[in-house]
Amino acid sequence: MIARAAALDRRIALALALGALALGLLLPHVLYVGLATDIVIWALFAAAFDLLLGYTGLLSFGHAMFFGGASYVAGLLILRAHWSFFPAVAAAVLAATAIAALVGAIAIRRQGIYFAMITLAFGQMLYFLANQFGDWTGGQDGLQNVQRPTLIAGIRLDNDTLLYYIALAAAVLGVASVLRVVNSPFGRVLSAIRENEPRATSLGYRTSAYKLVAFVLSGALAGLAGALFVIAHRFTSLDTLDWHTSGEVVIMTVLGGIGTVFGPLFGAPFYLIINDRLSTLTTSPGLVLGIIFIIVVSVFRRGMIGELVYALRRRRHVEHVAPGA
């Protein structure tokens, strides 16, 4: 029974992975490429967030600090030191990792709402620091006119479509690493911590170490998304560090389905496309998105992909169990 369930899960995962990849390859042909790039970046960000929320049970309200922090680091390195793509992105991811290690070491000592509040506080602190050091960060005006870096010697990333596929490749790598983590023994321990932390502790796991590693991994991948953001947009601003950004990634993850990895990959395009279209169609996009969010939370509590996975699993379960029962 368990083996069968695992095989089913693998099949669902494979189908969802192929679906997400197909969506990724299709996007720039049906949507304007700038929006498509944004979708890929946010999908990566949301998947990284889901690693922490869905698989470790930690609701961070300060993930903007990794996303925005990395975008500033990459932006400054490209703007002031003319670094090329790979070194700038690597440095930004390292910076996000460092921030995550520092903040995580303090935040994971608390749980639930206190954890959320500590991460929120650190996120806002970084926001105000960035505002304060306006000579470096441009303050409220943001970091503008960040030229696209060179990819490798001689090739500049000026072509939007090329940049899209690079962002897609980075996102695929990022999501693959999230999948690898959640399906590893390490990931099992994370799930155990999510379900019942005292029990995991009593089994001999140092849960705080596991939680810290999950926090840092999630922060690093969010940083990767942030670095891609500044390169794609040629600028970054305080908004990437604002708590709204942390909130948006929560919404995308919840819309897609918490604890599914693939859910956020569909939640992000859903949120971004609707937001993008509504900004042309109505004067109150927040109202419409809010209503959609309320409906999802109250009717499809598992999120879009979450409901699908749940339904497939249950149907299979009924087919196998019902005749004999």
Partner: peptide, 13 residues
Amino acid sequence: VDHQNDPALGANK
């Protein structure tokens, strides 16, 4: 277009 005071949305649009 409503840019919602969001530089990323404004630039994208």
